[in-house]
Amino acid sequence: MSETISRPFTFVKEGIFYFSRRVPNELKSHYTSPRIAFSLRTKSPKIAEARARKVADQLDEYWYHLRCQDVQMPGKHMLRQQGSIPAQPNIQAPDVSFSSVLLSEAVSVYLGLKGKGRSITFHRAAERSCGYVIDACGDKHLEAYTRADANAFRDALIARGLSGSSITRVFGTVRAVINFAASEQGLTLNNPFTGVYYDRNAGVSERTPFPQEAIASVQARSREVDDDLRWLVALVSDTGMRLAEAAGLAREDILQDDEKSLFARVRPLV
């Protein structure tokens, strides 16, 4: 068969995902076919799933209103004229046209492919950064974003009180998501979130080193209790490495050749 069921409300034909859903029996009189089917215009399972779910939700809402129209009006027999029945609201059929991908869909594509095996912080950074864009500019198709949107996004980040370095990280993540999703979809676009001006030094303060007396005090306290937590504190204070780097070391990685130092040398990690 050329068609195989892959995800809810979808099937695949020649590599393209299609939406498919049966029309409820009580609503078939409103349709010319017992089944609704059309192309989702994508080969990506993630995008197809998001689009199919959106259309299915729209259909559920639309069918609810159709059912309401077909229900007998309470007290209808008491009306003076049949034509005096209040008109039903004009409910529009769901829009099933797509030009590319929404930013929210782009995040799903990005994390679904590049997020495999990555840390939870990687996923949260993409979701949070693009969530800022959606809050400031709306969830648009990628090619619909403009430089005005990017500038409004920058202003929103500044209003949040983010420092210049934090804004740089957020913009970098947004650019990466858009560029990756556009490449996957075969879209050619100029990323408006590139080259946006802002003060990269705003809110950034220079870090001063800890006084040697404070380091010596921490190391002295670490010698008082012989356990793994104190070893970790002493190792970080003596080497300056990050906490995650120190916590991932094994005892055989530590080479102590200076009795004056708690941990003088660490085996290079490959």
Results as ranks from 00 to 15, higher is better:
residue 169 R to I: 02
residue 143 E to M: 08
residue 1 M to Q: 08
residue 71 V to K: 13
residue 98 F to L: 03
residue 151 N to L: 11
residue 182 A to D: 07
residue 70 D to P: 02
residue 149 D to H: 15
residue 142 L to P: 06
residue 121 T to E: 06
residue 180 F to Y: 15
residue 55 V to R: 03
residue 197 Y to A: 13
residue 94 P to L: 04
residue 266 V to K: 05
residue 24 P to H: 05
residue 3 E to K: 09
residue 207 R to N: 04
residue 45 P to H: 09
residue 228 D to I: 14
residue 82 Q to A: 12
residue 218 V to N: 01
residue 181 A to C: 06
residue 34 P to I: 05
residue 236 V to N: 05
residue 144 A to R: 09
residue 23 V to A: 09
residue 55 V to A: 02
residue 102 L to A: 03
residue 198 Y to R: 13
residue 115 G to R: 05
residue 125 A to D: 10
residue 63 W to G: 05
residue 29 S to K: 14
residue 241 M to P: 01
residue 261 S to A: 10
residue 97 S to K: 10
residue 106 A to T: 11
residue 245 E to D: 15
residue 192 P to H: 14
residue 192 P to T: 12
residue 5 I to M: 06
residue 189 L to H: 03
residue 127 E to T: 10
residue 180 F to K: 08
residue 141 H to M: 12
residue 175 R to F: 04
residue 22 R to K: 15
residue 223 R to K: 15
residue 235 L to I: 10
residue 229 L to D: 12
residue 234 A to G: 10
residue 146 T to G: 04
residue 214 A to E: 15
residue 194 T to A: 00
residue 127 E to G: 00
residue 167 I to A: 04
residue 71 V to T: 15
residue 256 Q to P: 00
residue 76 K to Y: 08
residue 77 H to L: 09
residue 248 G to M: 13
residue 104 S to L: 05
residue 144 A to S: 15
residue 91 I to L: 09
residue 91 I to D: 05
residue 60 D to H: 11
residue 90 N to P: 01
residue 144 A to P: 03
residue 26 E to P: 06
residue 37 A to I: 12
residue 143 E to C: 05
residue 164 G to Y: 11
residue 56 A to R: 07
residue 31 Y to N: 08
residue 135 D to W: 01
residue 97 S to M: 07
residue 78 M to G: 02
residue 265 R to T: 14
residue 84 S to N: 15
residue 193 F to L: 02
residue 122 F to M: 04
residue 218 V to H: 05
residue 182 A to C: 15
residue 57 D to S: 13
residue 3 E to Y: 03
residue 105 E to D: 12
residue 70 D to C: 04
residue 50 A to W: 02
residue 109 V to W: 02
residue 34 P to C: 07
residue 186 G to Y: 11
residue 182 A to K: 13
residue 92 Q to R: 14
residue 106 A to E: 07
residue 191 N to V: 05
